[in-house]
Every structure is written in structure tokens, then in C-alpha cells.
Design a protein around this nucleic acid. Structure first.
Length: 592
RNA sequence: GGGGCGGUAGCUCAGCCGGUUAGAGCAGGGGACUCAUAAUCCCUGGGUCGCGGGUUCGAGUCCCGCCCGCCCUACCA
């Protein structure tokens, strides 16, 4: 049964390059999932983009002496290049600074406002006297009024842990330029989150047994303490507020978290427009049978299990105040929020400023995308924080990718090519032959079930069990010792190649590049599993890069019979074996 | 301070509703083989399941307390 599946991938923030911790949280898992779903015959729409508004971009621009737009442009392009190089199969990877995104974000705001879920409130805000810009709480520091710790931030004291209001700080100063902020009254719009407590509660309860328990428990717990949340802020870098008397205020914008989550919808709409059928997005957002899977790191759960559903419910008119759906029509809530934990780097937190980091770009300059994808799939932070170490990366690469899987492919094709120059025909099969063939065919069920539940470690391990069994089979059959029975050798190598082909299919979601190579080695034609590409597009005369691609490859989640007689060339190695000295080289690159 | 998650062999991690001698991969030790990027295959040593209580015929698996790590804490993307 073919289903419409929306893969909604967290939006990387465009204030700098992304490191491997970021892509292990949202990037690789979402791509493995999407590739599997396409192979299983479902209609996948995988969308994301760079998140480009907000104060951190403003701060970064000031630091670099550039405009916000230039900073956003630069990191949008850089991040898009990195994600493309990793092979992430976005149907559309766009950005939040498009006219389309502005229009969709404003439409959601207007819908919520019309239904009564947004109200204004006057609060005190800090501004920088020299620039006139608002200072977010966390950019203010001073002495904690409770414990007298003098490095307290405006939102919280790191020493005593108490919540603070920046106006309470003793001797407050700006962390950006050291000056003393001025506090002034300012008016903002608030989202009435408590109006959704009940409907969110029953929605979450209905996910019992389906979501990862930690995500569900965490989300349910948040419900007990919902408060109205500001959705605008004093900043000129953002989406204008679409109300009379507000839209022309240069210094009032939608707060960045509000517009960023709407990106899933706006990107889907942009994708549909570019595909030539402007209403195509509705199949993923309004069809009751469609499913939406959201991938992110754990710091983002609240936005996806609480706030984004609240925005959708409010827009649909389904909160405590009722209402009617906006002009887009009622929209589907997430089916599942798939959250990853965090990756650490050699036992420490990733930190760009302290050079405890490896950026995706630098990683891919020295190692292959499949090597990184494999590491993340098999050793990434799927259900708990995990530690990336270069020595484990080396071991996994050399011991598992190269020695177990790459070598199985290489020895099987090499023997067949050398002895027969083609895929040999099988003769009478022995019990061992039949057992191994049945073994790899039977793996599609359980491996697929694990992938469908986003249990990637189990999936890749079960796929690798097939690889280990195939290596054992060859060791037991010893075809290289058989000198007087070429028919038996043919049967053994036929079986081995069939299982290599099956394992290649099982590993395609994780290792698309190398799987494509194996497909070609065994005589496959055309595209097996499609790869993303960057394209320049125009919108209102402005050009920007997007990631897109045609993923309608030949890959299907099933065993496909290899064709005897297909010519085989001597293989070239699929994966690079790494020199152990890279561990020390990489460690030397890390800061103290 | 509050909430959440985690703390299992040298390393990275599995262990669902409590049930026989706690598992895997890698690393270590021994052996076999040579088709293959010296890759592969077989055998093997190794754990007071963070600490302390409790419930139970029986707890890594449930309850309480504590210690450690990480995430969130409502203008933090």
C-alpha cells in the first residue's frame, strides 16, 4: 500500500557551518528513513532548509562586518553544499528568507490571530543605547540578585540555576559590546499555548506505544506548565507582522522560532509550485492517510511536539477557543516526532569557539560520505548521547565497512570475474546454498520493520549479520580449493553474488553511494538510488541555491534475482582503508 | 530549584511486559585459510549490570534515596 510520507527535517541555523553532531541528529537519520520509505514504495516528500532569521545571525553579521543578508546567503550556500555532499535526498532544501516563506508564515499568523489564539502584551525589554537594537536576555549578563554570582545571564543564573529577569540583574552589561542596556516598555504578541493544553494532551496520549517513550514522556510533562509565549520580538531581521499598524514597523518581526517551524509547510508549498502542480503539497498535509515524521536533535523536541502542533491546531480552529481553518484549509499534525540525543566529540561537548569540532565540510574533504553515514547509523546518538572518537571511526571504517562488507563484495566479484568473466549460473543447490539465500531474502522483513520505526542501529546491525553470514559461507565452501568441479564453483559464486546483491539493497538507505556502485558492478543500468543535486533557482529576481533531486531510482525493498551471463569486470575497492595515523592527526587538529 | 534521559565486559552499545549459567561488535589471547584492500573463518579469557536500601519465591529489569553525565526550564535556534 503506497502512502504519502512527509519527512520533515530540522532546519539548520545559518550562522555558521554545521558539524557532524548536527547531521547525526537530523540529517543522516532522516535520509536513511526517506530512502527506505521510497524503496518500500511510498511517496516521500522530504523538506528542510536553512533557518536564517534572528539575533544570532545579526550578531554574526556584526562580527564579520557584513549585512545579515550576506551572512545568511553565505551560510545557506555552504550548508546546502555540505548536505548535498552527504547525499541527503531532500526533495526540497530551501531557506526561510524566500517570499513564499514570508507569505506562508504570515498566513499562519493571521489564521491564529483570526481564531483568537494570539494576543498583545506589554513587557519590558532591554535595548542597546549605541545601536538602538534590542538585546535578548541571554546576551545580557550581570550579578545574580539571588546568589551574587557575577556571570549570570539575563535569562538564568548558571551558578544557582534560578530563572531570572534581566531587569533584576545587578550591573547588567551587554555581552556583545559591554555597554549598559536600557530597559523600555515594548509591546509583543503572545501565543496562547494554554488554550491547547487539553487537545495536545489527548493528541499525545494517542501516540502512546508509537513514539519513542522518552519523547512522549517529555512532551506530556511539558503540558502541565504551559504559559503564553511571545512570538514577536524587537528586531528588524525577520518576517514582518501581517497586521494593520504593525507590518510597517521596521523593528517588529515574528520571532524566529515561530517562522522557522512553519518552514516545513512553506517548503512543501514551494516544492509543489516548482514541481508544476501548485496543489501537490496537499497530499502530504491534508490527506488523512498521509503521515508526517519530524527529525531533530533533543533540544528541539518542545518545538515539534508542543509548539508546532499548537500552531497547527490553532490555525485549524481546533484549540479551546474553537475557530475555523484558515485559507489553506486544515493541516495535519505530526504523526511522529523522532528525536536524536547528542553526539559528543572525544568525550567533550562540541564547541566551535574552542575548536572541539569537526565540520561536515572538513570531514568530507578527507573521508567519504558513506563512511560518515555508516558511523552515524551504527554508533550515532539514537537513544542516548554517544561519543564520537576518531579511533572508533577508524575501527568501524576499517573493520566493518572495509574488512567485512567491502571485502565480501570484492572477493565475490573478483573470483567470479577471474574465473568466469560473468555472473555464473547456479546448478544444483546444497542445503547450505539454500540456507544462505533464504537468510538474505528473509532479512528484508525485519530490517525494514526496524527502519520503519526509525531504529537504525538495529537495522544496520541486522543487515550486517547477512554480511557476516556470507563471509562465513565462503569460508566454509572454500570455492578457491575446488579444482575439479567448475559447476560447483559456479553455484557457490552465484549464491555469493546473489547475497551480495541483496545485502547491497539492504544497505542502500545507509550507504547510497557505494550501493549504487555495486548495482553498476553487477550489471545494473540507470539509477539505483538517486542522489541530490544543488540547483540555482529564482524568485522575484533573486537567485538562490536549493537541494533537490529525482529519486525515482530502480531501488526496491526486495530481493532481485541477479542475471547469469551478465559480464563482470575485476572490481575496484568500494571503501578506502584508513591509515591508523589519521587518529593522531585528527586529534592534533582539536583544540585543548 | 523543577522536569527528562542515561550510567551494563578494555571500548561502543543491546537487553520488551521482572524468571534458567547477563549478550553483540570491536579490542586482547590461540588456531585455520589464502579468493579478497593481511581482508576472512573457528576457538577463547573478561562484567559486585553507578552506590545504598526496599518489594518479590526471584530484579540489570519495579519502588525509594544518593552520586555522576547530558538535555530542557516558557523572548534559547
Amino acid at each position: 500500500m503506497s502512502q504519502h510520507i512527509l519527512t520533515a527535517v530540522a532546519w539548520p541555523y545559518a550562522n555558521g557551518p554545521r558539524h557532524i553532531g548536527h547531521v547525526s541528529g537530523f540529517g543522516v537519520p532522516s535520509d536513511v528513513f526517506s530512502r527506505y520509505q521510497r524503496m518500500a514504495g511510498n511517496k516521500v516528500l522530504m523538506v528542510s532548509g536553512t533557518d536564517e532569521h534572528g539575533t544570532p545571525i545579526q550578531v554574526q553579521a556584526d562580527k564579520e562586518g557584513l549585512g545579515v543578508r550576506e551572512v545568511a546567503d553565505r551560510y545557506n550556500r555552504l550548508i546546502a553544499e555540505d548536505l548535498t555532499a552527504l547525499g541527503l535526498s531532500y526533495d526540497l532544501f530551501t531557506r526561510t528568507t524566500t517570499a513564499n516563506h514570508y507569505a506562508v508564515a504570515q498566513e499562519i499568523f493571521k489564521g491564529l490571530h483570526a481564531n483568537g489564539y494570539i494576543f498583545p502584551k506589554t513587557t519590558m525589554g532591554a535595548i542597546s543605547p549605541s545601536t538602538g537594537r534590542t538585546l535578548p536576555d541571554r546576551y545580557i549578563e550581570g550579578t545574580c540578585p539571588i546568589c551574587s554570582y557575577d556571570g549570570a545571564r539575563g535569562d538564568q543564573c548558571d551558578n544557582c540555576g534560578n530563572q531570572l529577569d534581566p531587569i533584576e540583574l545587578i550591573n547588567p552589561v551587554s555581552r556583545i559590546n559591554g555597554e549598559t542596556p536600557v530597559f523600555v516598555e515594548t509591546e509583543h504578541f503572545m501565543l496562547d499555548l494554554p488554550a491547547f493544553a487539553e487537545v495536545l494532551g489527548s493528541w499525545l496520549q494517542s501516540k502512546q506505544g508509537e513514539w519513542r517513550p522518552n519523547v512522549l514522556k517529555f512532551s506530556l510533562n511539558l503540558l502541565g506548565d504551559l504559559h503564553p509565549r511571545a512570538i514577536t520580538r524587537d528586531l528588524d531581521w525577520g518576517v514582518p507582522i501581517p497586521l494593520e499598524g504593525w507590518s510597517d514597523q521596521a523593528n517588529k518581526r515574528l520571532y524566529v522560532w515561530f517562522d522557522a517551524v512553519i518552514g516545513y509547510l512553506s517548503a512543501s508549498i514551494e516544492w509543489a509550485r516548482r514541481s508544476g502542480d501548485p496543489d501537490a503539497w496537499r497530499q502530504w498535509w491534508q490527506n488523512p492517510d498521509a503521515r508526517g515524521y519530524y527529525f531533530m536533535g533533543k533540544d528541539n523536541i518542545v518545538f515539534h511536539s508542543e509548539i508546532w502542533p499548537a500552531l497547527l491546531l490553532g490555525y485549524n480552529g481546533q484549540g479551546a477557543r474553537g475557530g475555523t481553518a484558515g485559507s489553506l484549509g486544515a493541516l495535519n499534525l505530526p504523526s511522529e516526532v523522532v528525536s536524536s540525543e547528542f553526539l559528543t566529540m572525544e568525550g567533550r561537548k562540541f564547541s566551535s569557539s574552542r575548536q572541539v569540532v569537526i565540520y561536515v565540510r572538513d570531514f568530507l574533504a578527507r573521508y567519504d560520505a558513506d563512511a560518515l553515514r555508516y558511523y552515524i547509523a551504527v554508533a550515532g546518538p539514537e537513544n542516548q548521547d554517544t561519543d564520537f572518537t576518531w579511533s572508533e571511526f577508524l575501527n568501524r571504517n576499517n573493520g566493518e565497512l572495509v574488512a567485512a562488507w567491502g571485502n565480501l563484495v570484492n572477493r565475490s566479484i573478483s573470483m567470479a570475474a577471474k574465473n568466469f568473466g560473468a555472473i555464473p549460473e547456479a546448478g544444483d543447490l546444497t542445503d547450505a546454498d539454500r540456507a544462505l539465500l533464504a537468510r538474505s531474502r528473509a532479512a528484508f522483513g525485519p530490517v525494514g520493520a526496524e527502519l520503519n520505526r526509525s531504529r537504525f542501529k538495529n537495522a544496520v546491525n541486522e543487515a550486517f549479520d547477512v554480511v557476516r553470514d556470507a563471509n562465513r559461507y565462503l569460508a566454509e565452501q572454500e570455492p578457491w580449493k575446488i579444482k575439479d568441479d567448475p559447476e560447483r564453483v559456479k553455484s557457490i559464486l552465484h549464491v555469493a553474488l546473489q547475497v551480495v546483491d541483496d545485502a547491497k539493497t539492504l544497505l542502500t538507505p545507509f550507504l547510497p553511494t557505494s550501493s549504487n556502485k555495486i548495482y553498476a558492478m553487477l550489471g545494473g543500468t540507470g539509477v539505483w538510488s538517486g542522489m541530490p543535486e544543488m540547483k540555482e533557482v529564482d524568485e522575484d529576481g533573486r537567485s538562490y541555491p536549493v537541494i533537490t533531486g529525482s529519486y525515482e531510482g530502480a531501488a526496491r525493498w526486495e530481493s532481485a534475482s541477479i542475471r547469469p551471463g551478465t559480464p563482470l569486470a575485476p572490481p575496484t575497492p568500494l571503501f578506502r582503508k584508513l591509515d591508523p595515523k589519521i587518529v593522531d592527526e585528527e586529534l592534533a587538529r582539536l583544540g585543548e
